[in-house]
């Protein structure tokens, strides 16, 4: 289990991370969100032991993270961290050996993952000769070759098509099942919603939202009411107090409301038409993110 406790990191007068705390249990996927420059990379570097926090501590299974513990951590960086002049095999052997693995074990695991990701033929090819998507797969393999206790994924799906996204997603779920603690960071909120049970949202190094994803979404007052049908009096709906906006996409209306108490008033109007769909949904994480971050900036 990873525990991040009250960590603060300052660069001169700038506070990059401000008293941040969270915990990631074994077999849990945790989302770390934030706009660019929010402090995510600094947090990852503190967890990896690359940076020393000015205050607070980070422990993995109760032990302070040092160079022995980092052997059990995998890290997919946002930008590809591959030595492009090396072959796939050399690259994985390089990182695997730095994680304390023996060559034979690395080769065995590499063969398994190359086969699973359907790129066995690229084993002896130079990294620079591979497509962006395949390079991303190799980066992912390099991070999990040590079967980590903690896996940090910073934008792991960059450059991947939907089929390859699924391959990586399945691998992540398998690692979760085996008990790996996973920290996931992405600007694509649908991935966060898809993966994470818990998350923290950072703005300027400070956590402004944290907790279970389901709780965050249900506690967020604004709702989206999805309506489909004909002869619906949209103008009447727009006049209801508490309706923020009404948008239409391919015959389906999305009515944003201040809170769920507005929903019955809208339903009373909608039911007069020929309605085929009426659904009160939580706001998307994307909307929550934009409003939360935007609110702080305002």
């Amino acid at each position: 289990m990873l525990i991040v406790k009250n960590i603060t990191k300052k660069y001169g007068k700038n506070v990059a991370v401000d008293n941040l705390s969270f915990a990631v249990a074994d077999g849990e996927i945790f989302g770390l969100l934030g706009e660019n420059g929010a402090g995510k990379t600094t947090t990852f570097r503190i967890i990896m032991g690359l940076l020393e926090a000015n205050a607070g501590e980070v422990t993995l299974d109760g032990k302070k993270i040092d160079y022995n513990e980092t052997d059990h951590i995998g890290f997919v960086t946002e930008e590809r961290s591959l030595l492009t002049k090396l072959s796939v095999q050399e690259q994985i052997e390089f990182y695997g050996t730095l994680k304390g693995l023996e060559k034979e074990e690395i080769d065995k695991r590499l063969d398994y993952w190359l086969d699973r990701f359907e790129i066995s033929s690229y084993k002896t090819r130079k990294i620079k000769e591979l497509s962006k998507g395949n390079q991303q797969k190799i980066q992912f393999i390099s991070a999990i070759i040590n079967e980590p206790k903690l896996l940090i994924l910073d934008e792991p799906f960059t450059g991947l098509d939907p089929i390859n996204v699924k391959l990586i997603k399945d691998a992540i779920y398998d690692l979760k099942k085996k008990g790996t603690s996973i920290i996931f960071s992405s600007h694509q909120m649908e991935y966060i919603e898809d993966f994470c049970e818990k998350l923290v949202l950072l703005v300027k190094g400070h956590a402004i939202l944290e907790g279970k994803l389901s709780d965050i979404k249900s506690n967020y007052a604004k709702k989206n009411i999805m309506v489909k049908g004909s002869n619906i009096e949209i103008d009447a709906i727009k006049k209801i107090k508490g309706v923020i906006s009404v948008t239409e996409n391919q015959g389906e209306y999305c009515i944003k409301v201040e809170d769920k108490s507005i929903a019955p008033k809208i339903f009373n109007i909608v039911k007069k038409g020929d309605v085929t769909k009426y659904d009160v949904a939580d706001a998307s994480l994307n909307e929550i993110f934009i409003e939360a971050v935007g609110g702080i900036h305002e």
């Binding site: 990896m48 980092t70 890290f75 590809r80 961290s81 591959l82 492009t84 730095l98 994680k99």
Partner: peptide
């Protein structure tokens, strides 16, 4: 320079001092 520009440095320094 190569290790820095390819960002491999983060992985390497994550495992050795």
């Amino acid at each position: 320079c190569e290790e820095k520009t390819t960002r491999s440095m983060e992985i390497i320094i994550g495992n050795v001092s």
